[in-house]
C-alpha cells in the first residue's frame, strides 16, 4: 500500500524546523511558518473524523493554540514536529467527543476498504463491505483511529507509531490483530 510520503521529512527539514521552533519560543509571531506548513494536514486529520467543516476548523485552531501555549515543553526527539501536532489534535478530538459523541463520523474511502479487504485476504463483495462498515462503526476509538490512519489516510506504520507513541512494529501488530478480530466478528455475524 502506498503511504503518504509528505509526512516524512529529511534531516535538513528537521533542522529547519528546529530553528523555526527556537524562533517561535522567543517570539510567538515566528510560529506562523509552522502554522502555515501544518494547517492543511492537521485540518485534514481532524476533518477525517468529523462531518462538519466549521467544527473541524475550530478544533484545528485549538490544536495550534495548545501547541503554541506548550511550545516550551516540546522536546525534540528527532521526530517531525507534526507528530506532536497530530497527538495534540487527537487529544482535542477525543476530548470533544467525550461530550459530543454524535459529532464523530467515519469517513470511508472505497479504495481504503479495498486495501483492507486485501490485507484481510477477503474478496470484495458488497454484503461483506456493509458488514465491515458496521463493525468499524462499533470499534473502540483507538481502533477506529488505527484503521483510519492506515487505510483512509494511507500512513506508514512508522508514522502511525510516531503519532500514537508506539513502535513501528507495535503499530503493525496492533493493526493486524484488529483486522483479524474484525474478520472474526464479520464471519460470526455472517
Amino acid at each position: 500500500m502506498n503511504t503518504n510520503s509528505k509526512y516524512h521529512v529529511d534531516q535538513e527539514k528537521l533542522e529547519e524546523e528546529r530553528h523555526m521552533l527556537e524562533a517561535a519560543r522567543r517570539d510567538p509571531q515566528a510560529f506562523a511558518p509552522l502554522y502555515g506548513r501544518y494547517f492543511e494536514p492537521i485540518f485534514r486529520f481532524v476533518y477525517q473524523r468529523l462531518d462538519d467543516q466549521n467544527l473541524a476548523q475550530d478544533l484545528t485552531q485549538q490544536t495550534f493554540i495548545k501547541a503554541l501555549e506548550k511550545l516550551n515543553k516540546y522536546e525534540d526527539r528527532g521526530l517531525p514536529f507534526s507528530s506532536w501536532l497530530y497527538r495534540i489534535a487527537l487529544n482535542e478530538l477525543n476530548q470533544h467527543f467525550r461530550s459530543n459523541s454524535k459529532n464523530r463520523c467515519l469517513n470511508i474511502e472505497s479504495a481504503g476498504v479495498d486495501a483492507m479487504m486485501e490485507e484481510m485476504n477477503e474478496d470484495r463483495y458488497e454484503p461483506y463491505i456493509d458488514k465491515l462498515i458496521e463493525v468499524m462503526d462499533q470499534l473502540e476509538p483507538e481502533s477506529q483511529t488505527l484503521i483510519e490512519m492506515r487505510f483512509f489516510e494511507k500512513r506508514s506504520f512508522k508514522e502511525i507509531g510516531e503519532i500514537l507513541e508506539l513502535t513501528e512494529n507495535n503499530a503493525k501488530v496492533r493493526l493486524y490483530r484488529l483486522l483479524d478480530k474484525m474478520k472474526m466478528i464479520i464471519s460470526r455475524v455472517a
Partner: peptide, 10 residues
C-alpha cells in the same frame, strides 16, 4: 467514541 452509524462513503 463509537460513531453510532454515522459515516460517509467516498
Amino acid at each position: 467514541m463509537r460513531t453510532n452509524g454515522k459515516h460517509n462513503i467516498d
